[in-house]
Nucleic acid binder design. Structure first.
Lengths: 93, 93
DNA sequence: TAATCATATAACCATACAGTGATATGTCAA
DNA sequence: TTGACATATCACTGTATGGTTATATGATTA
């Protein structure tokens, strides 16, 4: 594996390595939600949630769809939650 | 999922979110190696490698076995490498 | 157009932590 | 015991980034 690939993979893991972002992902596990919905779901600042959502979308972890004045973010790949589950079961040992 | 669980899962991902640590994991994918062997394999400082190995072992990602004056670290769970592969294939899209 | 709502961005601060050099600890051989 | 080797730890620096407040941008409605 090249250094560039490792850097990319690490970057991906790093994005998942933040509790607030995991909470955001959790809030999106059923269906896409607007920024405001996520804000109330996770109980954080609008600016903060917006920043995290942008990062996750830029990394290809979330989809982003604008509808009127609302922006809806959703999980792009169920694999992401699967990995969280894997880690959780691994930690359970 | 509780906040504590999320914090633990995030912590786990954060450990995988560092290129140097991924290189170390890669160096251990075949068989356990001593600290020095890893040092030469990844081309980093002894102090740095030792610190990373300790962190990974403390998190239960690596096994640690002392034999004479050498300490051998090895992958505890093949799942770890599987996740790296998953991410890599996900990024390939 | 003006007012309101939703989202994004900018500037800033504080903290976490990777990397380094020096040194401590522990183990073996001569 | 002394010296050489393997590993761990300490103190420190620099940097990346999460969170905050304030503001900008854009869309909708009256």
């Amino acid at each position: 594996m090249t250094h560039g690939e490792l850097e990319q993979i690490a970057q991906h893991f790093r994005l998942l390595g933040e509790p607030m972002r995991l909470r955001i992902l959790q809030a999106l596990c059923q269906k896409p939600r607007s920024v405001n919905e996520v804000v109330t779901a996770v109980g954080a600042t609008q600016a903060n949630v917006s920043k995290h959502l942008s990062l996750l979308a830029a990394a290809g972890i979330l989809t982003r769809e604008k509808n009127g004045q609302c922006v809806y973010y959703g999980l792009k790949d169920p694999l992401t939650l699967k990995m969280c589950e894997l880690v959780r079961s691994q930690l359970a040992d």
